[in-house]
Amino acid sequence: MSRYILKRILICIPTLVAITFIIFTIMSYTPGDVTRMILGQEATPEAMKELAHQMGLDKPFFVRYANYMVHLLQGDMGVSYRSGQSVFLEIIHRFPITLKLAFGSMCIAIAVGLLLGILAAVKQYSILDFFGTALAMLLASVPYFWLGLMMILLFSLKLGLLPSMGSNTWVHFILPSITVCVGSTAAILRLTRTTMLETIRQDYIRTARAKGQTEGKIIFKHALKNALLPVITVIGIEFGSLLGGAVVVESVFSLNGVGSLLLQAIRLKDTPQVTGCAVFLAFFFMMIMLAVDILYAYIDPRIKARYQNS
């Protein structure tokens, strides 16, 4: 098992190299001049050239990339062009906010999605099933930014119940978490319903019934564990993409998370910051997927056996 985990961590390295290369290339060959961004519109060409030389921007692409990689492999993500601070420290400083948002919304998504998904499957073709499926469709098609704005209008402005911006207490995270969770909720709900429907038709469910087991135990002990595998994968993917993808919601609710940091960095062509954020988020994403795979082994003994053999 530990060999399998080690192998998976090693596989992350080529992926990260590829990611840095792609981001670095995009940042280098898209229009826009960093030196002008820093010095402002009135800067003289001489001053810009001087600054470019100081920053090493006049060197060929591959030399710059190699330089960056050498530093990265030593754990140095470089210094932000914008603030002059360590890229890594800026990310770490803002990451808790993103993590809280992602975590909060995943908790809601899992609770609502799993529960409604199970109910919809168990009571197939009932009102509940209809309601669940309709809700999933609605949630999947609502745009985040619109929902966020509407919720601010209703809960913050009209009713004055919840804060619309800031990140000081957990109360601040309620509205953004609900806003971000809708897509994941829909995905989890639909998938749970499908896999549960499939599972409760399995022969071993009939075996459990033939033993005289109660319906509740049949659903939660026999069916859920088997239906959960694909759902866990989706939860992992959704969680990972929330870490990097909550950009719009972060700006709607003025949360200073990694998403808004990344957006800001892209606007300013802050290459070290953009690449740093991407590497950080990608690494985190891969760790989540690894955790999902390890979780698999604990749910399904057949997968555990396969890991141990490989």
Binding site: Q202, T207, A210, G212, Q213, D300
Partner: peptide
């Protein structure tokens, strides 16, 4: 439920699928 399994039991056709793979 009190009768199933206790007084009347059933053996199903396909043993490959009759057992829960995760227990």
């Amino acid at each position: 439920r009190g009768i199933r399994g206790a007084h009347i039991s059933m053996i199903f056709q396909d043993p490959m699928t009759s057992l829960n793979p995760t227990i």
